[in-house]
């Protein structure tokens, strides 16, 4: 793992906080294809870590492994010291935001948002209360009774965010949640997401192929190589918090985006090593 070129790493986040996610030597094989061969990852509580990498490199696979949704071929993953599938049942409140809003069309926005609580057996009154609170936080309080079909793409994604926040997660996994949105909406949601993180300080793992988005949101950016995925470079993003959209015009922001882009290009460029071919 090469050290990143980023200066002034935000030592306040991360270094002292206890580890939440520890993964070492993860191997995942889909048939003859190695999705990852030797992935190592450490995430501390309260961090916001973005994974960037070329399309199809297995970024989403990492999130699914952390959520305990996918089996691995080899290697060790510990979430709060436990197997991911065990951790999400007993140790850690985990939430997942998918690429699509994945709302149930036959449920109102409020009923969609409170689904995680409903599955956890929380009482109806408390569910309604907490769903409304989560909806208020994403600015959708007036749309609680609407149905997903009646919302725009950006609003649906806000509802999906509210659902993910509804169970007060400690670990929030986000799989390119804003990829399908227009640039303006995406930047607006970036700002809102960062504010939500600053407020509650859940641990965020964010997958994207948009480098500016990764730099804007994160305390740390990891660059993944093409399949089989491993961490090629790491950047501590020391940009001051809270951050607003104006930050994107700052030279330091541009410099970090440039540095991450270069690292990404370097690991994508041929010639590929022999170990990157499927065996």
């Amino acid at each position: 793992m090469q050290p990143g070129t980023a200066a002034c790493a935000d030592r306040a986040e991360g270094t002292d906080a206890p580890l939440l996610v520890e993964a070492s030597g993860i191997q995942v094989q889909f048939g003859p294809l190695w999705a990852m061969r030797d992935l190592n990852l450490q995430i501390r509580r309260g961090e916001f870590v973005s994974l960037v990498g070329p399309s199809g490199c297995g970024k989403s696979t990492v999130l699914r492994l952390l959520a305990g949704l996918l089996p691995r071929t080899a290697g060790e993953i510990r979430v709060a010291g436990a197997e991911p599938s065990v951790a999400r049942r007993h140790q850690v409140r985990v939430s997942f935001v998918f690429q699509d809003a994945t709302l149930l069309p036959w449920r109102s926005v409020a009923a969609n948002v409170s689904l995680p609580l409903e599955l956890a057996g929380v009482s109806r009154e408390e569910r309604a209360c907490r769903a409304l609170e989560a909806l208020t936080r994403v600015g959708l309080a007036d749309f609680a009774r609407y149905y997903p079909q009646q919302l725009s793409g950006g609003m649906r994604m806000r509802a999906a965010l509210a659902r993910a926040l509804c169970n007060s997660p400690e670990l929030l996994l986000l799989d390119e949640p804003f990829a399908a949105l227009d640039d303006l909406t995406r930047r607006q949601l970036n700002e809102e997401l960062l504010a939500l993180w600053l407020r509650d300080r859940w641990t965020g793992v964010f997958v994207t192929h948009n480098i500016a988005e990764a730099v804007f949101l994160s305390t740390r950016v990891l660059v993944l190589t093409p399949r089989p995925a491993r961490v090629a470079a790491e950047f501590h993003i020391g940009l001051p918090l809270p951050r607003s959209d104006e930050l994107r015009g700052e030279p330091e922001f541009a410099r970090l985006v440039g540095a991450v882009s270069r690292a990404l290009r370097a690991c994508v460029q041929p010639p590929y090593g022999s170990d990157q071919r499927p065996t």
Binding site: R64, A67, L69, R88, R89, V94, S95, F96, F98, Q99, D100, T102, L104, W106, L115, P116, E118, L119, A120, N167
Partner: peptide, 26 residues
């Protein structure tokens, strides 16, 4: 049933019965 919806239910530790009643049947 949509794969991501099934994953959504899995992430939130839905039981088989819950997945059936709240996802598959509707």
């Amino acid at each position: 049933v949509d794969r991501t919806l099934a994953e959504l239910f899995a992430v939130y530790n839905a039981t088989r019965r819950q997945t059936l009643l709240k996802l598959r049947l509707p």
